[in-house]
Write a protein that binds this DNA or RNA. Structure first.
Lengths: 273, 273
DNA sequence: CCGTGCCGTTTACGACGTAAACGTCCTAGT
DNA sequence: ACTAGGACGTTTACGTCGTAAACGGCACGG
Protein backbone atom coordinates (compact mmCIF):
# COMPACT_ATOMS: atom_id res chain seq x y z
CA UNK A 1 0.00 0.00 0.00
CA UNK A 2 1.89 3.06 -1.17
CA UNK A 3 1.83 6.56 0.22
CA UNK A 4 -0.83 6.72 2.91
CA UNK A 5 -2.22 10.15 3.71
CA UNK A 6 -1.03 12.02 6.71
CA UNK A 7 -3.93 14.20 7.73
CA UNK A 8 -2.40 15.32 10.98
CA UNK A 9 0.45 17.43 9.68
CA UNK A 10 3.57 17.02 7.70
CA UNK A 11 6.18 14.36 8.12
CA UNK A 12 8.90 16.53 9.65
CA UNK A 13 11.59 15.39 7.24
CA UNK A 14 9.45 14.39 4.29
CA UNK A 15 8.92 16.10 0.99
CA UNK A 16 5.66 17.84 0.27
CA UNK A 17 3.15 15.00 -0.09
CA UNK A 18 0.95 17.06 -2.40
CA UNK A 19 3.68 17.87 -4.90
CA UNK A 20 3.51 15.91 -8.13
CA UNK A 21 6.79 14.14 -7.34
CA UNK A 22 5.74 13.38 -3.81
CA UNK A 23 3.24 10.64 -4.53
CA UNK A 24 2.05 8.00 -6.92
CA UNK A 25 0.16 8.54 -10.07
CA UNK A 26 -3.07 9.78 -8.55
CA UNK A 27 -4.37 13.13 -9.77
CA UNK A 28 -2.77 12.69 -13.16
CA UNK A 29 -4.15 14.04 -16.39
CA UNK A 30 -6.54 11.87 -18.32
CA UNK A 31 -3.95 10.06 -20.40
CA UNK A 32 -4.06 11.24 -23.96
CA UNK A 33 -1.10 9.23 -25.16
CA UNK A 34 1.68 10.56 -27.36
CA UNK A 35 0.46 13.33 -29.67
CA UNK A 36 0.05 11.36 -32.85
CA UNK A 37 0.36 7.67 -32.09
CA UNK A 38 -2.79 5.68 -31.70
CA UNK A 39 -5.07 7.68 -33.94
CA UNK A 40 -8.05 7.40 -31.65
CA UNK A 41 -11.27 8.71 -33.10
CA UNK A 42 -11.21 12.07 -31.33
CA UNK A 43 -13.99 12.46 -28.82
CA UNK A 44 -14.67 15.17 -26.30
CA UNK A 45 -12.74 13.51 -23.50
CA UNK A 46 -9.62 13.16 -25.61
CA UNK A 47 -9.83 16.79 -26.64
CA UNK A 48 -10.13 18.01 -23.06
CA UNK A 49 -7.26 15.81 -21.98
CA UNK A 50 -5.08 17.14 -24.75
CA UNK A 51 -6.04 20.70 -23.87
CA UNK A 52 -5.01 20.21 -20.24
CA UNK A 53 -1.79 18.60 -21.35
CA UNK A 54 -1.12 21.46 -23.72
CA UNK A 55 -1.83 24.16 -21.14
CA UNK A 56 0.36 22.43 -18.58
CA UNK A 57 3.17 22.27 -21.10
CA UNK A 58 2.88 25.55 -22.99
CA UNK A 59 0.83 27.87 -20.82
CA UNK A 60 -2.71 29.03 -21.10
CA UNK A 61 -2.07 31.85 -23.53
CA UNK A 62 -0.45 29.42 -25.97
CA UNK A 63 -3.61 27.34 -26.25
CA UNK A 64 -5.22 27.98 -29.59
CA UNK A 65 -7.84 26.03 -31.44
CA UNK A 66 -5.44 25.57 -34.33
CA UNK A 67 -2.54 24.54 -32.13
CA UNK A 68 -4.67 22.18 -30.09
CA UNK A 69 -5.87 20.63 -33.29
CA UNK A 70 -2.32 20.21 -34.49
CA UNK A 71 -1.39 18.66 -31.16
CA UNK A 72 -4.09 16.08 -31.83
CA UNK A 73 -3.05 15.61 -35.44
CA UNK A 74 -6.18 17.25 -36.74
CA UNK A 75 -7.38 20.54 -38.19
CA UNK A 76 -8.80 23.14 -35.84
CA UNK A 77 -12.29 22.92 -37.26
CA UNK A 78 -12.53 19.26 -36.38
CA UNK A 79 -12.75 20.23 -32.71
CA UNK A 80 -15.96 22.10 -33.30
CA UNK A 81 -17.78 18.87 -33.91
CA UNK A 82 -17.30 18.09 -30.19
CA UNK A 83 -17.03 21.47 -28.56
CA UNK A 84 -19.12 24.54 -29.32
CA UNK A 85 -16.26 27.00 -29.06
CA UNK A 86 -13.18 28.07 -27.24
CA UNK A 87 -14.93 29.37 -24.14
CA UNK A 88 -16.73 26.10 -23.66
CA UNK A 89 -13.47 24.30 -24.21
CA UNK A 90 -12.01 26.20 -21.28
CA UNK A 91 -15.09 25.45 -19.20
CA UNK A 92 -14.60 21.82 -20.01
CA UNK A 93 -10.96 22.00 -19.04
CA UNK A 94 -11.87 23.43 -15.66
CA UNK A 95 -14.51 20.80 -15.14
CA UNK A 96 -12.17 18.01 -16.16
CA UNK A 97 -9.45 19.18 -13.84
CA UNK A 98 -11.64 19.32 -10.77
CA UNK A 99 -13.17 16.00 -11.74
CA UNK A 100 -9.76 14.51 -11.06
CA UNK A 101 -10.83 14.72 -7.44
CA UNK A 102 -13.16 11.79 -8.00
CA UNK A 103 -10.23 9.65 -9.01
CA UNK A 104 -8.21 10.51 -5.94
CA UNK A 105 -8.38 7.58 -3.52
CA UNK A 106 -7.43 9.81 -0.59
CA UNK A 107 -10.42 12.09 -1.00
CA UNK A 108 -13.82 10.86 0.09
CA UNK A 109 -17.29 12.03 -0.78
CA UNK A 110 -18.59 11.17 2.68
CA UNK A 111 -17.29 12.14 6.06
CA UNK A 112 -16.80 8.57 7.21
CA UNK A 113 -14.01 9.51 9.63
CA UNK A 114 -15.36 12.83 10.82
CA UNK A 115 -15.62 16.20 9.20
CA UNK A 116 -12.08 17.25 10.02
CA UNK A 117 -10.67 14.26 8.22
CA UNK A 118 -13.03 14.96 5.35
CA UNK A 119 -11.95 18.57 5.02
CA UNK A 120 -8.28 17.71 5.42
CA UNK A 121 -8.39 15.15 2.66
CA UNK A 122 -10.41 17.38 0.41
CA UNK A 123 -8.08 20.32 0.90
CA UNK A 124 -5.02 18.27 0.11
CA UNK A 125 -6.72 16.73 -2.87
CA UNK A 126 -7.45 20.15 -4.30
CA UNK A 127 -3.94 21.28 -3.53
CA UNK A 128 -2.56 18.26 -5.37
CA UNK A 129 -4.61 19.19 -8.39
CA UNK A 130 -3.50 22.79 -8.23
CA UNK A 131 0.15 21.81 -8.04
CA UNK A 132 -0.26 19.25 -10.81
CA UNK A 133 -1.77 21.89 -13.14
CA UNK A 134 -0.41 25.25 -12.11
CA UNK A 135 -1.25 26.82 -15.43
CA UNK A 136 -4.83 25.65 -15.29
CA UNK A 137 -5.59 26.66 -11.73
CA UNK A 138 -5.97 30.40 -12.40
CA UNK A 139 -8.67 29.37 -14.83
CA UNK A 140 -10.38 27.37 -12.10
CA UNK A 141 -10.17 30.42 -9.91
CA UNK A 142 -11.43 33.09 -12.25
CA UNK A 143 -13.88 31.50 -14.66
CA UNK A 144 -17.41 32.62 -13.70
CA UNK A 145 -19.15 29.75 -11.90
CA UNK A 146 -22.43 28.27 -13.02
CA UNK A 147 -24.38 29.73 -10.12
CA UNK A 148 -23.23 32.58 -7.90
CA UNK A 149 -23.15 30.31 -4.85
CA UNK A 150 -20.94 27.70 -6.48
CA UNK A 151 -17.56 29.01 -5.45
CA UNK A 152 -14.20 28.15 -6.86
CA UNK A 153 -12.22 26.05 -6.45
CA UNK A 154 -14.97 23.51 -5.59
CA UNK A 155 -16.86 24.33 -8.74
CA UNK A 156 -19.17 21.41 -9.00
CA UNK A 157 -22.62 20.90 -7.58
CA UNK A 158 -21.64 17.43 -6.56
CA UNK A 159 -18.88 18.66 -4.31
CA UNK A 160 -21.04 21.39 -2.86
CA UNK A 161 -23.63 18.78 -2.04
CA UNK A 162 -20.98 16.49 -0.61
CA UNK A 163 -19.55 19.29 1.50
CA UNK A 164 -22.87 20.37 2.94
CA UNK A 165 -24.01 16.83 3.65
CA UNK A 166 -20.70 15.98 5.30
CA UNK A 167 -20.81 18.94 7.65
CA UNK A 168 -24.48 18.86 8.51
CA UNK A 169 -24.20 15.17 9.21
CA UNK A 170 -21.40 15.93 11.65
CA UNK A 171 -23.27 18.35 13.83
CA UNK A 172 -23.09 21.58 11.89
CA UNK A 173 -26.27 23.57 11.63
CA UNK A 174 -27.32 24.45 8.12
CA UNK A 175 -26.22 28.03 8.51
CA UNK A 176 -22.84 27.01 9.91
CA UNK A 177 -22.31 24.51 7.15
CA UNK A 178 -22.89 27.22 4.58
CA UNK A 179 -20.63 29.61 6.43
CA UNK A 180 -18.00 26.90 6.62
CA UNK A 181 -18.32 26.28 2.90
CA UNK A 182 -17.62 29.90 2.21
CA UNK A 183 -14.70 30.19 4.60
CA UNK A 184 -13.22 26.98 3.25
CA UNK A 185 -13.50 28.12 -0.36
CA UNK A 186 -11.83 31.42 0.38
CA UNK A 187 -9.05 29.66 2.22
CA UNK A 188 -8.36 27.21 -0.58
CA UNK A 189 -8.56 29.78 -3.31
CA UNK A 190 -6.27 32.29 -1.70
CA UNK A 191 -3.59 29.87 -0.63
CA UNK A 192 -3.53 27.76 -3.75
CA UNK A 193 -3.74 30.58 -6.23
CA UNK A 194 -0.81 32.28 -4.57
CA UNK A 195 1.11 29.06 -4.37
CA UNK A 196 0.75 28.19 -8.02
CA UNK A 197 1.40 31.73 -9.17
CA UNK A 198 4.57 31.81 -7.11
CA UNK A 199 5.60 28.47 -8.54
CA UNK A 200 4.71 29.59 -12.02
CA UNK A 201 6.87 32.67 -11.81
CA UNK A 202 9.74 30.69 -10.41
CA UNK A 203 9.56 28.10 -13.15
CA UNK A 204 8.77 30.24 -16.18
CA UNK A 205 11.75 30.89 -18.39
CA UNK A 206 10.22 30.84 -21.85
CA UNK A 207 7.07 32.79 -21.27
CA UNK A 208 7.65 36.53 -21.33
CA UNK A 209 11.23 37.69 -21.02
CA UNK A 210 14.52 35.99 -20.38
CA UNK A 211 16.42 37.49 -17.48
CA UNK A 212 16.18 34.79 -14.82
CA UNK A 213 19.66 35.20 -13.30
CA UNK A 214 19.33 38.75 -12.01
CA UNK A 215 16.77 41.41 -12.56
CA UNK A 216 16.74 44.06 -9.91
CA UNK A 217 14.05 46.75 -10.34
CA UNK A 218 15.84 49.25 -8.08
CA UNK A 219 15.43 47.95 -4.58
CA UNK A 220 17.39 50.86 -3.16
CA UNK A 221 14.22 52.53 -1.92
CA UNK A 222 13.12 49.45 -0.04
CA UNK A 223 15.79 48.54 2.49
CA UNK A 224 13.57 46.27 4.54
CA UNK A 225 12.64 44.27 1.47
CA UNK A 226 16.31 43.93 0.67
CA UNK A 227 17.16 42.87 4.19
CA UNK A 228 14.38 40.28 4.28
CA UNK A 229 14.82 39.10 0.73
CA UNK A 230 16.19 35.79 1.88
CA UNK A 231 13.26 35.17 4.17
CA UNK A 232 10.83 36.32 1.52
CA UNK A 233 12.24 33.86 -0.96
CA UNK A 234 12.06 30.67 1.09
CA UNK A 235 9.20 28.49 0.08
CA UNK A 236 7.20 27.37 3.09
CA UNK A 237 4.00 26.79 1.15
CA UNK A 238 3.30 23.32 2.43
CA UNK A 239 3.74 24.20 6.07
CA UNK A 240 1.82 27.44 5.74
CA UNK A 241 -1.01 25.66 4.02
CA UNK A 242 -1.12 23.06 6.75
CA UNK A 243 -1.03 25.63 9.49
CA UNK A 244 -3.72 27.82 7.99
CA UNK A 245 -5.85 24.76 7.37
CA UNK A 246 -5.52 23.61 10.97
CA UNK A 247 -6.46 27.06 12.12
CA UNK A 248 -9.49 27.11 9.88
CA UNK A 249 -10.60 23.73 11.19
CA UNK A 250 -10.21 25.05 14.70
CA UNK A 251 -12.42 28.01 13.92
CA UNK A 252 -14.99 25.76 12.34
CA UNK A 253 -15.04 23.54 15.39
CA UNK A 254 -16.04 26.54 17.47
CA UNK A 255 -18.74 27.38 14.98
CA UNK A 256 -19.95 23.82 15.03
CA UNK A 257 -20.17 23.63 18.82
CA UNK A 258 -22.09 26.87 18.96
CA UNK A 259 -24.36 25.29 16.43
CA UNK A 260 -25.34 28.62 14.99
CA UNK A 261 -24.27 31.15 12.46
CA UNK A 262 -21.30 32.72 14.23
CA UNK A 263 -22.47 36.15 13.28
CA UNK A 264 -25.84 37.21 14.53
CA UNK A 265 -25.16 35.60 17.91
CA UNK A 266 -28.41 36.78 19.47
CA UNK A 267 -30.27 34.24 17.42
CA UNK A 268 -29.47 31.66 20.04
CA UNK A 269 -28.53 33.38 23.30
CA UNK A 270 -31.97 34.55 24.19
CA UNK A 271 -33.93 31.81 22.64
CA UNK A 272 -34.24 28.14 23.31
CA UNK A 273 -35.12 26.03 20.37
CA UNK B 1 -15.92 65.16 7.69
CA UNK B 2 -17.93 62.48 5.94
CA UNK B 3 -17.84 58.76 6.55
CA UNK B 4 -15.17 58.07 9.16
CA UNK B 5 -13.67 54.62 9.20
CA UNK B 6 -14.87 52.08 11.65
CA UNK B 7 -12.00 49.67 12.09
CA UNK B 8 -13.57 47.80 14.97
CA UNK B 9 -16.38 46.11 13.14
CA UNK B 10 -19.40 47.06 11.18
CA UNK B 11 -21.96 49.61 12.11
CA UNK B 12 -24.75 47.23 13.11
CA UNK B 13 -27.34 48.93 10.95
CA UNK B 14 -25.09 50.47 8.30
CA UNK B 15 -24.49 49.54 4.73
CA UNK B 16 -21.20 48.02 3.70
CA UNK B 17 -18.69 50.84 4.15
CA UNK B 18 -16.41 49.41 1.49
CA UNK B 19 -19.03 49.30 -1.24
CA UNK B 20 -18.75 52.01 -3.87
CA UNK B 21 -22.05 53.57 -2.78
CA UNK B 22 -21.13 53.38 0.88
CA UNK B 23 -18.63 56.21 1.00
CA UNK B 24 -17.37 59.38 -0.60
CA UNK B 25 -15.31 59.67 -3.68
CA UNK B 26 -12.17 58.00 -2.39
CA UNK B 27 -10.82 55.11 -4.41
CA UNK B 28 -12.27 56.46 -7.62
CA UNK B 29 -10.76 55.96 -11.04
CA UNK B 30 -8.29 58.49 -12.29
CA UNK B 31 -10.78 60.80 -13.94
CA UNK B 32 -10.60 60.52 -17.68
CA UNK B 33 -13.52 62.78 -18.44
CA UNK B 34 -16.19 62.01 -20.99
CA UNK B 35 -14.92 59.86 -23.87
CA UNK B 36 -14.52 62.53 -26.52
CA UNK B 37 -14.82 65.94 -24.92
CA UNK B 38 -11.68 67.83 -23.98
CA UNK B 39 -9.29 66.41 -26.56
CA UNK B 40 -6.44 66.13 -24.10
CA UNK B 41 -3.11 65.21 -25.64
CA UNK B 42 -3.21 61.54 -24.73
CA UNK B 43 -0.54 60.50 -22.28
CA UNK B 44 0.07 57.24 -20.50
CA UNK B 45 -2.00 58.17 -17.47
CA UNK B 46 -5.02 59.04 -19.55
CA UNK B 47 -4.73 55.79 -21.47
CA UNK B 48 -4.58 53.70 -18.31
CA UNK B 49 -7.51 55.58 -16.81
CA UNK B 50 -9.55 55.00 -19.92
CA UNK B 51 -8.60 51.34 -19.93
CA UNK B 52 -9.79 50.89 -16.35
CA UNK B 53 -12.98 52.73 -17.15
CA UNK B 54 -13.52 50.58 -20.19
CA UNK B 55 -12.90 47.30 -18.36
CA UNK B 56 -15.20 48.32 -15.54
CA UNK B 57 -17.90 49.14 -18.05
CA UNK B 58 -17.52 46.45 -20.70
CA UNK B 59 -15.54 43.64 -19.10
CA UNK B 60 -11.98 42.58 -19.52
CA UNK B 61 -12.48 40.49 -22.63
CA UNK B 62 -14.01 43.45 -24.43
CA UNK B 63 -10.85 45.52 -24.05
CA UNK B 64 -9.09 45.74 -27.37
CA UNK B 65 -6.42 48.09 -28.56
CA UNK B 66 -8.70 49.25 -31.33
CA UNK B 67 -11.69 49.73 -29.08
CA UNK B 68 -9.67 51.48 -26.40
CA UNK B 69 -8.34 53.78 -29.07
CA UNK B 70 -11.85 54.50 -30.27
CA UNK B 71 -12.92 55.16 -26.68
CA UNK B 72 -10.21 57.80 -26.57
CA UNK B 73 -11.09 59.19 -29.98
CA UNK B 74 -7.90 57.92 -31.54
CA UNK B 75 -6.60 55.08 -33.71
CA UNK B 76 -5.25 52.00 -32.00
CA UNK B 77 -1.70 52.56 -33.16
CA UNK B 78 -1.56 55.88 -31.37
CA UNK B 79 -1.51 54.00 -28.06
CA UNK B 80 1.77 52.36 -28.96
CA UNK B 81 3.60 55.62 -28.61
CA UNK B 82 2.92 55.42 -24.85
CA UNK B 83 2.59 51.71 -24.15
CA UNK B 84 4.73 48.93 -25.60
CA UNK B 85 1.89 46.51 -26.13
CA UNK B 86 -1.25 45.01 -24.79
CA UNK B 87 0.39 42.98 -22.05
CA UNK B 88 2.13 46.01 -20.67
CA UNK B 89 -1.12 47.91 -20.89
CA UNK B 90 -2.70 45.33 -18.59
CA UNK B 91 0.28 45.51 -16.27
CA UNK B 92 -0.19 49.24 -16.15
CA UNK B 93 -3.87 48.83 -15.41
CA UNK B 94 -3.08 46.57 -12.46
CA UNK B 95 -0.47 48.98 -11.19
CA UNK B 96 -2.80 51.95 -11.56
CA UNK B 97 -5.59 50.24 -9.73
CA UNK B 98 -3.54 49.30 -6.71
CA UNK B 99 -1.98 52.74 -6.74
CA UNK B 100 -5.41 54.03 -5.82
CA UNK B 101 -4.47 52.88 -2.32
CA UNK B 102 -2.14 55.84 -2.03
CA UNK B 103 -5.03 58.19 -2.58
CA UNK B 104 -7.16 56.59 0.08
CA UNK B 105 -7.09 58.80 3.18
CA UNK B 106 -8.14 55.90 5.39
CA UNK B 107 -5.11 53.77 4.54
CA UNK B 108 -1.77 54.67 6.04
CA UNK B 109 1.74 53.75 5.02
CA UNK B 110 2.91 53.68 8.62
CA UNK B 111 1.49 51.88 11.59
CA UNK B 112 0.93 55.05 13.60
CA UNK B 113 -1.92 53.51 15.59
CA UNK B 114 -0.62 50.00 15.95
CA UNK B 115 -0.29 47.17 13.54
CA UNK B 116 -3.84 45.95 13.91
CA UNK B 117 -5.19 49.31 12.90
CA UNK B 118 -2.72 49.39 10.03
CA UNK B 119 -3.79 45.97 8.74
CA UNK B 120 -7.47 46.71 9.22
CA UNK B 121 -7.26 49.90 7.20
CA UNK B 122 -5.14 48.30 4.53
CA UNK B 123 -7.49 45.36 4.17
CA UNK B 124 -10.53 47.55 3.82
CA UNK B 125 -8.71 49.79 1.40
CA UNK B 126 -7.93 46.85 -0.83
CA UNK B 127 -11.46 45.58 -0.48
CA UNK B 128 -12.80 48.97 -1.54
CA UNK B 129 -10.63 48.84 -4.64
CA UNK B 130 -11.73 45.32 -5.45
CA UNK B 131 -15.39 46.23 -5.15
CA UNK B 132 -14.89 49.41 -7.16
CA UNK B 133 -13.27 47.46 -10.02
CA UNK B 134 -14.67 43.94 -9.95
CA UNK B 135 -13.68 43.26 -13.53
CA UNK B 136 -10.11 44.35 -12.95
CA UNK B 137 -9.49 42.46 -9.75
CA UNK B 138 -9.05 39.04 -11.33
CA UNK B 139 -6.26 40.64 -13.30
CA UNK B 140 -4.68 41.86 -10.09
CA UNK B 141 -4.95 38.34 -8.76
CA UNK B 142 -3.58 36.37 -11.66
CA UNK B 143 -1.03 38.53 -13.48
CA UNK B 144 2.45 37.19 -12.73
CA UNK B 145 4.12 39.47 -10.19
CA UNK B 146 7.43 41.17 -10.78
CA UNK B 147 9.29 39.00 -8.28
CA UNK B 148 8.05 35.69 -6.94
CA UNK B 149 7.82 37.07 -3.42
CA UNK B 150 5.68 40.05 -4.37
CA UNK B 151 2.27 38.55 -3.84
CA UNK B 152 -1.04 39.74 -5.09
CA UNK B 153 -3.03 41.68 -4.25
CA UNK B 154 -0.36 43.91 -2.65
CA UNK B 155 1.64 43.93 -5.83
CA UNK B 156 3.95 46.82 -5.24
CA UNK B 157 7.33 46.88 -3.60
CA UNK B 158 6.32 50.00 -1.78
CA UNK B 159 3.48 48.24 -0.02
CA UNK B 160 5.60 45.21 0.75
CA UNK B 161 8.14 47.52 2.31
CA UNK B 162 5.45 49.39 4.18
CA UNK B 163 3.94 46.14 5.47
CA UNK B 164 7.22 44.70 6.68
CA UNK B 165 8.32 47.94 8.32
CA UNK B 166 4.97 48.34 9.99
CA UNK B 167 4.99 44.89 11.50
CA UNK B 168 8.63 44.72 12.51
CA UNK B 169 8.30 48.14 14.12
CA UNK B 170 5.41 46.77 16.17
CA UNK B 171 7.22 43.85 17.71
CA UNK B 172 7.14 41.24 15.00
CA UNK B 173 10.33 39.37 14.36
CA UNK B 174 11.51 39.41 10.80
CA UNK B 175 10.40 35.85 10.21
CA UNK B 176 6.98 36.51 11.70
CA UNK B 177 6.54 39.64 9.66
CA UNK B 178 7.21 37.68 6.51
CA UNK B 179 4.89 34.89 7.59
CA UNK B 180 2.24 37.50 8.38
CA UNK B 181 2.69 39.02 4.96
CA UNK B 182 2.03 35.69 3.34
CA UNK B 183 -0.97 34.83 5.47
CA UNK B 184 -2.41 38.29 4.94
CA UNK B 185 -1.98 38.11 1.16
CA UNK B 186 -3.67 34.75 0.97
CA UNK B 187 -6.52 35.98 3.10
CA UNK B 188 -7.13 39.09 1.01
CA UNK B 189 -6.80 37.29 -2.28
CA UNK B 190 -9.15 34.46 -1.46
CA UNK B 191 -11.86 36.54 0.10
CA UNK B 192 -11.83 39.38 -2.37
CA UNK B 193 -11.52 37.29 -5.49
CA UNK B 194 -14.50 35.23 -4.44
CA UNK B 195 -16.44 38.30 -3.49
CA UNK B 196 -15.95 40.09 -6.78
CA UNK B 197 -16.55 36.98 -8.82
CA UNK B 198 -19.78 36.38 -6.98
CA UNK B 199 -20.77 40.00 -7.55
CA UNK B 200 -19.73 39.80 -11.15
CA UNK B 201 -21.89 36.78 -11.80
CA UNK B 202 -24.81 38.35 -10.05
CA UNK B 203 -24.57 41.56 -12.04
CA UNK B 204 -23.66 40.20 -15.46
CA UNK B 205 -26.61 40.02 -17.81
CA UNK B 206 -25.06 40.95 -21.15
CA UNK B 207 -21.90 38.92 -21.01
CA UNK B 208 -22.52 35.30 -21.96
CA UNK B 209 -26.09 34.15 -22.08
CA UNK B 210 -29.40 35.69 -21.15
CA UNK B 211 -31.38 33.53 -18.76
CA UNK B 212 -31.23 35.46 -15.48
CA UNK B 213 -34.75 34.64 -14.23
CA UNK B 214 -34.40 30.90 -13.97
CA UNK B 215 -31.77 28.53 -15.09
CA UNK B 216 -31.81 25.24 -13.26
CA UNK B 217 -29.10 22.75 -14.27
CA UNK B 218 -30.96 19.78 -12.79
CA UNK B 219 -30.66 20.14 -9.06
CA UNK B 220 -32.66 16.99 -8.49
CA UNK B 221 -29.53 15.03 -7.62
CA UNK B 222 -28.48 17.51 -4.98
CA UNK B 223 -31.24 17.76 -2.40
CA UNK B 224 -29.12 19.43 0.23
CA UNK B 225 -28.10 22.13 -2.17
CA UNK B 226 -31.73 22.69 -2.99
CA UNK B 227 -32.71 22.81 0.65
CA UNK B 228 -29.95 25.28 1.52
CA UNK B 229 -30.26 27.33 -1.63
CA UNK B 230 -31.71 30.24 0.27
CA UNK B 231 -28.87 30.25 2.76
CA UNK B 232 -26.33 29.82 -0.01
CA UNK B 233 -27.65 32.84 -1.83
CA UNK B 234 -27.60 35.39 0.97
CA UNK B 235 -24.69 37.76 0.68
CA UNK B 236 -22.82 38.05 3.94
CA UNK B 237 -19.55 39.09 2.33
CA UNK B 238 -18.91 42.13 4.48
CA UNK B 239 -19.49 40.34 7.76
CA UNK B 240 -17.53 37.28 6.66
CA UNK B 241 -14.65 39.44 5.57
CA UNK B 242 -14.64 41.24 8.85
CA UNK B 243 -14.83 38.06 10.87
CA UNK B 244 -12.07 36.31 8.96
CA UNK B 245 -9.92 39.42 9.20
CA UNK B 246 -10.39 39.61 12.94
CA UNK B 247 -9.48 35.97 13.23
CA UNK B 248 -6.36 36.49 11.16
CA UNK B 249 -5.32 39.41 13.33
CA UNK B 250 -5.83 37.24 16.37
CA UNK B 251 -3.60 34.55 14.93
CA UNK B 252 -0.97 37.14 14.08
CA UNK B 253 -1.03 38.49 17.61
CA UNK B 254 -0.11 35.05 18.86
CA UNK B 255 2.70 34.86 16.34
CA UNK B 256 3.90 38.30 17.34
CA UNK B 257 4.00 37.49 21.03
CA UNK B 258 5.92 34.33 20.40
CA UNK B 259 8.23 36.49 18.35
CA UNK B 260 9.27 33.63 16.16
CA UNK B 261 8.34 31.92 13.01
CA UNK B 262 5.63 29.62 14.30
CA UNK B 263 6.93 26.77 12.22
CA UNK B 264 10.48 25.61 12.54
CA UNK B 265 11.16 27.48 15.78
CA UNK B 266 14.85 26.62 16.01
CA UNK B 267 15.93 27.43 12.45
CA UNK B 268 16.33 31.18 12.53
CA UNK B 269 19.16 31.60 15.01
CA UNK B 270 21.74 30.42 12.50
CA UNK B 271 19.96 31.60 9.43
CA UNK B 272 21.93 31.39 6.17
CA UNK B 273 22.14 34.43 3.96
C1' DC C 1 -26.34 0.25 -56.20
C1' DC C 2 -27.40 4.21 -54.19
C1' DG C 3 -28.54 7.45 -50.74
C1' DT C 4 -27.48 9.12 -46.16
C1' DG C 5 -25.15 10.06 -41.98
C1' DC C 6 -20.82 10.77 -39.75
C1' DC C 7 -16.43 13.17 -39.52
C1' DG C 8 -12.58 15.60 -40.83
C1' DT C 9 -10.90 19.27 -44.40
C1' DT C 10 -10.99 23.38 -47.12
C1' DT C 11 -12.05 27.83 -47.84
C1' DA C 12 -13.31 32.21 -46.28
C1' DC C 13 -14.30 36.31 -43.34
C1' DG C 14 -13.85 39.69 -39.90
C1' DA C 15 -11.25 41.05 -35.75
C1' DC C 16 -7.19 41.10 -33.38
C1' DG C 17 -2.08 42.75 -32.08
C1' DT C 18 1.42 45.25 -34.01
C1' DA C 19 5.58 46.57 -37.51
C1' DA C 20 6.61 50.12 -40.72
C1' DA C 21 6.00 53.98 -43.39
C1' DC C 22 3.78 58.20 -43.70
C1' DG C 23 1.58 62.74 -43.00
C1' DT C 24 1.10 67.02 -40.25
C1' DC C 25 1.90 70.19 -37.15
C1' DC C 26 4.85 72.83 -33.57
C1' DT C 27 9.16 74.56 -32.41
C1' DA C 28 14.02 76.11 -32.70
C1' DG C 29 18.21 77.55 -35.03
C1' DT C 30 20.12 80.24 -38.48
C1' DA D 1 11.61 84.16 -42.44
C1' DC D 2 12.80 79.87 -43.75
C1' DT D 3 13.85 75.39 -42.90
C1' DA D 4 15.35 71.07 -40.32
C1' DG D 5 13.73 68.14 -37.10
C1' DG D 6 11.01 66.06 -33.68
C1' DA D 7 6.61 64.87 -31.57
C1' DC D 8 2.27 62.74 -32.48
C1' DG D 9 -1.39 60.52 -34.69
C1' DT D 10 -2.81 57.87 -39.15
C1' DT D 11 -2.51 54.62 -42.86
C1' DT D 12 -1.35 50.47 -44.65
C1' DA D 13 -0.07 45.85 -44.24
C1' DC D 14 0.90 41.18 -42.33
C1' DG D 15 0.22 37.11 -39.77
C1' DT D 16 -2.83 34.87 -36.42
C1' DC D 17 -6.95 34.18 -34.21
C1' DG D 18 -12.01 32.12 -33.68
C1' DT D 19 -15.38 30.21 -36.36
C1' DA D 20 -19.31 29.91 -40.30
C1' DA D 21 -20.15 27.37 -44.35
C1' DA D 22 -19.44 24.38 -47.90
C1' DC D 23 -17.20 20.31 -49.21
C1' DG D 24 -15.32 15.38 -49.59
C1' DG D 25 -14.71 10.68 -48.38
C1' DC D 26 -16.14 6.65 -46.16
C1' DA D 27 -19.16 3.27 -43.98
C1' DC D 28 -23.49 1.16 -43.84
C1' DG D 29 -28.49 -0.02 -44.35
C1' DG D 30 -32.10 -0.20 -47.96
Amino acid sequence: MPTPVDPEGLDPEGVDPDSPEGRGGAAAVIPAGPPDTGRAPLDRRRILGAAIEYIDAQGLSALTMRRLGAHLGVEAMALYRYIPGREQLLDGVVESVIDELYGDPDVHLEAAHGWQDYLQRLAHGVRRIALAHPEVFPLVATRPPAAPWVRPPLRSLRWVESFLVALTSCGFSEASAVAAYRAYSSFLLGHLLLEVSQKGVAVNAEDAGAQPPEFAPDLSEYPTVVRLQGLLSVDESAAEFEEALENLLGRLEVVRREGRNPRNPESFTDRPD
